[in-house]
Design a protein around this nucleic acid. Structure first.
Lengths: 228, 228, 228, 228
DNA sequence: TATGAATGAGGCTTCATTCAT
DNA sequence: AATGAATGAAGCCTCATTCAT
């Protein structure tokens, strides 16, 4: 009896260790990716950093790309969580909460966010891992319904401009994406007020698409507003 | 004399041919990059597509990366040109012209724009070509003074919110950057109304940062904290 | 006493289980080898198929190659048994029985026979397992004396051509070997009358080397030189 | 004019050198394969032996397997040539010439023949290079029509037993195949009279399937002959 | 001047074997 | 006694760059 339980314990213990090592690999990879050019990071280096043998990496991940996609998915789960929270708060009355929450999440660790953007680029190009890439996309889209619902409500209430609901959250996505790149693009790197800049942009993200951004009576439609 | 002139002609002719070939290389590279995954494009393939020998490529470009940066620079020159035009029109009274012009330029050929974004990523990471990268950054910044002037004016006129002027155009940069990525990110690829979406985002880009985007008393959110 | 006996029983039981598992490994390996390309079969796969852990395999076999040689030896024991039987029947008067029996044995499961041929190839090349390889060779040669005796008798009786006795059985070996390969060589794979073909070849095997295969005066060719 | 011709010469010269190097690679590979276990020969070793860089090998062959198949094809072309010659001589009246020629060809350099057998094994298992493998098979079958014709004639003339014509030449193939293996199988390696043995087997190959191998009136059918 | 054959460093991945539990 | 995670040597292949013609 005791034997049974102890053996089960041992197995559980082992599994925990195994998963811990998996995380070590991920962490090592992220560390290295953040330190050095992505495509100078080899599986070998990751193994060394994780303190394990190269072959061991392949006990956890079928290919190098699976490490990348895992990093991306882990990160995206965080973002998704934030969106979910934001939507809940928004449904509870705080109309800008979803966008706000989203921007906060993406800008909390912009370097990591940027890394994930870049990894995704590499992966999509590489062509394999299509399955897991699809998982990523579905994860991203997992909140679409809620977002659409929320946005529609805001449009109905006249808060947001009357365009297809997804326009609003996709615009948010775009701005957040670009904001992160802005943080690290060497062109603008000489500036030192990044924090304030990001706050400014976040605010834009939260309010963009709001009805009556300028004189309400002057833009019944996108086109119209332009003709002005 | 005639001999002289004909020899000069010949030299000029040669130079023209040389330059034409250089452009052929660039064009070939762009074509290929647009067709296939960036890192599956080899110098060899570029040479074949350009209809010349691989060695000849190296008569024009010291390294493969120089081809990339050249593509980027060529493209950026176009963008810069549009910004300049926009600024001029803005100075002439059309306050949104600069942003509008910028978005139009970046979204005119979004696939190419995206390609350039990706090439820049690779290059920056690679570390060499620092010189030419600096050239790129300076090119991008070449309009900063004018943009700052224009933006300051608009702030003074109360059109734009009173934040450091560069916040406004960097926000534009970010949104445009993200918009382009939005076009090609597979997550949202299933949508078909990209054109309208881009128009919507462009409009945001043109108007974002405008003063009094909404009724001040209607947003207890982030905005408030700032207005304070 | 009872304790003793039950403990002895238990040991015997264990041994039986151990041997049974050994056979399971062998069987699993053979199955896999027959299903897929030999060098795509890993020890791991064998363990999985056998339903045991990879480490356990190494409790039974010192190296992967030992599994191979064991498969070969097991098979060769069967063949040897058939030869022994054939020789006995031949000694009892059925002059072609040895060869006939041999061909039947080798062609009974030609796929397995071919597998064993291939495994032997790999092993011989690999160089280790020299000891067990030698065991294989001795097993094969274990009937040589009897075969020599039998063949000599048949030569003396004028049934077989008067050449060194081993020429006869080695020729048999060669033909059987080639016949098996013929079954699986893709060049001839499109044919469907393999069974008849094998029967034809077996008959040749049984009768080849027979004296007076044709009228001596009818072959000015190679034969002549020998008939001397 | 002279310029033209000299430039053409140079190109031709280059091509010749290129092809010569290709042959050097093949030769190096064959040398190594004959010296050492096939699967211990790496592309690297081949390159070293050929006196070139590893990368150069891949200018000539797309994959390592292409080197193997090339060796096989080269060899098989030789064999095919011999068969063709033999058929011609057979058509000219020497009924055993085809088989004789075939055995001579296969046994002229049995070590190489054996090597080719082994390479084919590896290749077939590997699964890729299906195209070139098919080329090999077609090459082997290229003489089938002629062989069928020849064999049919010999059957009609009563020289060969009346079975489907291909039985005869496939039996030849099998015997030759096995004979070569016999030469190098370590089981029989201790013998020293290989030459005579091969001669004996060749003779069998030339005459096997001949009508009336034993008393003509005693074997109306294969089976019958056995019952005796 | 244009060429493209040659190069070789370096990446990813596989798998037989070991050994701590 | 059984396990299977860990290991790392070794293999194949790619491709930017060089350089002799």
């Amino acid at each position: 009896m005791q034997n049974n339980s102890s053996s089960a314990d041992r197995i559980r213990e082992k599994k925990k260790l195994f998963l811990a090592r998996e995380q070590r690999i991920i962490d090592a990879a992220v560390e290295l990716f953040l330190e050095e050019s992505i495509d100078r990071i080899t599986v070998s280096k990751i193994a060394v950093r994780a303190g394990i043998g190269k072959g061991t990496v392949y006990k956890h991940f079928l290919t190098k790309n699976e490490i990348l996609i895992r990093i991306i998915l882990d990160y995206e789960h965080n973002i998704t969580k934030s969106i979910t929270d934001g939507i809940q708060r928004a449904d509870a009355g705080d109309s800008g909460a979803a966008a706000k929450s989203y921007f906060e999440a993406r800008l909390e660790n912009p370097k990591l966010d940027r890394l994930v953007q870049q990894l995704e680029d590499r992966l999509v190009e590489s062509g394999d891992v299509a399955d897991q890439a699809e998982e990523l996309y579905q994860l991203r889209r997992s909140n679409e319904d809620a977002l659409t619902g929320l946005t529609t409500k805001l449009i109905d209430r006249g808060v947001l401009e009357d365009v297809p609901p997804h326009f609003h959250y996709l615009a948010c996505w775009a701005l957040a994406q670009g904001a992160v790149e802005l943080c690290f693009n060497k062109t603008w790197n000489y500036r030192t007020d990044t924090t304030e800049l990001m706050e400014f942009i976040s605010n834009i993200g939260v309010t963009m698409g709001n009805q009556g951004q300028y004189h309400p009576d002057d833009s019944p439609s996108i086109k119209k507003s332009k003709s002005k």
